[in-house]
Write a protein that binds this DNA or RNA. Structure first.
Lengths: 192, 192, 192, 192
DNA sequence: GATGAATGAGTCTTCATTCAT
DNA sequence: AATGAATGAAGACTCATTCAT
């Protein structure tokens, strides 16, 4: 038996296909039949793995969000200084958004659109704890502005999605230099 | 004769209905029939004012973007100092996004989704010139970071949309104090 | 006052437009709105002259059929010999079908299609009497085959429509020589 | 397994229904829903077999034309004399047009109407070669008039459609005697 | 008489979902 | 587990016809 079962492979193919097609056409403009075709399974097969279309996107969303979070905290050590920790996480996130474009675009679309239901949204959020903890610590140490984490997120993390969008639409090209500049701006906005 | 013709009223009702329904359900999940019903016209009437569904959203997008831009630069005088000018514009934008929630949500969805075609996106952008000019001036005076306007926008303007989204989802409440804090963060991120 | 009233002109324009559009698209694929546009009147105006769409084609059919019949018997004198009379009529019909192509195509489409109602069809037929009389006389004189006039029509007159169709589709070019050959064939088929 | 698959049966039912309904109402006046109902399948099923309505008629046309051609040349042997061969083919065609009325009416409507697209028309023509060859041979032998095959077709074959139409409208009754008379007229018109 | 905005029934077509195989 | 043919509900769009002006 393979380490990854045939079933698992099919599910992954479906997830990949969903991401790609929803990115290009939006959720409601991507038929299940196309997802099936791209994943090289039959239309009926989807329903062996997912209850229905809504359940499919929900699951994909949760999965991608999990992958994103995992990536965001790779190499992250809780003990590290606030600034160092933030830089680590921020650059991970930036790397994710600029390298795993498909996944990142998908998240961006889901987060600005009513296609994901509220429970799945909640589910998707729960991995972000370490960043919130870090910010909490920063606030205690007088390093981070004493504002809502939503505000911190809005000004330091959310902007990366915009840059990614512009790059995707070929209006803007992100270089390593830009990334450092961007990091500076992010840090400037949240540090005291 | 009325100042606003009956036709004009119908078109406006259609625009309003489109914004509201697309906000709540997304573009592809809002049938023309519902738009018609909400605007209290017959389904066929839509096609007197718009070529098809795509044309409808495109036009609504352009219109809302124009309204947004107009609002963004109200009371703005070109001669004013860079910081003062930026504060003026930023607060206008914030006010728009927090007061004209329907319109702002609509823009946010359109800007992160493939429902608007590229020509209409271009059309929607062209009113932002004064802000770009201001930033240019700021860079010359050594006040604003010498980075791409996309970057400046990402870190100073785009975050407002996130706050609006969170408020809309009732996860976060924006108060006048918050607005000032947010402005500080915006300014901190772009100023040298 | 003009000899031809404004009303009459509008009606004629509508008839012409109907013929042209039905020829190119078929009855059910030509909207009233297009007919109105081509006739340079408003859509509502059609209903001042015709009860509804069916009535419009019916009337156009009857009118064109009448024009056709009139043309068919121009210069025709009842006293003339059967062969001479037939040649006269046949060549008139051929001339009509090859010169008044729009009208002739329209008739051809109506005659092979269920778009005209039966009463109007009957109405359209009633002008053909002189030809039937001529054939009757020919049969009495032992010149024309003693077969049903439908048969005589099928083999001597109906073929012209086919040639017209082929010419219209640019598969066949009718020359004066052809016309004479065709007449010979027509005559050969019905004469004893 | 059946000799004729279930799928094949459905397609045939759709073809039959299309012929029947288009005959009675014309192409544009027969909704897909009615075709589906008559074929006892769901509306959506049509689109498993045909791309769209146009494709449906095109395919039906080609199929019927092929059946017609096959019938026209049954029992036909190339070596036979020109007159014998022509009589064979002509009578086959007459038999088809008088027995397979539905199919024949359908062809008649398609051939005098812009509902079939040009490629499908071309496709439909290609089976008529043997008749053209026979006529060519007849011309060489000085038996058939040296005129365009379009002319020969117009005067010898096309008339049958007229007789069929009249019979269908119950204005004329075709008997075996009539058929022989008609054949004589056809032959008289094309023979030298 | 003339207009053309408005209607809404009717059409083609798509697509999520089911189910016999 | 997997298929894919079949369904039928729903949606975009058209168009004959009406009616206030």
């Amino acid at each position: 038996m393979n380490r990854v079962s045939k079933s698992q492979k099919k599910k992954e193919a479906l997830v990949k296909a969903t991401i790609s097609l929803v990115n290009n056409n939006g959720f409601h403009a991507t038929p299940m039949s196309k997802i099936a075709k791209m994943a090289e399974v039959s239309a009926g097969t989807i329903y062996l793995y997912f209850e229905n279309k809504q359940d499919l996107v929900n699951q994909v969303y949760i999965e991608v969000k999990a992958a994103f979070s995992k990536f965001a905290f790779k190499d992250y050590k809780e003990g590290v200084s606030v600034e160092e920790g933030f830089e680590n996480i921020w650059k991970n996130i930036a790397e994710f958004k600029l390298k795993e474009i498909e996944e990142a675009m998908f998240l961006s679309q889901c987060d600005n659109t009513p296609i994901i239901d509220e429970p799945s949204r909640k589910e998707g959020l729960k991995h972000l704890e370490p960043l919130l903890d870090l910010w909490e610590r920063g606030k205690e140490q007088g390093i981070i502005k004493p504002v809502s984490p939503y505000m911190l997120y809005a000004f330091s993390i959310y902007p990366i999605a915009f840059l990614m969008n512009m790059q995707q639409r070929e209006l803007y090209k992100i270089t390593p230099t830009n990334v450092n500049e961007a990091y500076e701006m992010a840090w400037n906005s949240i540090k005291i």
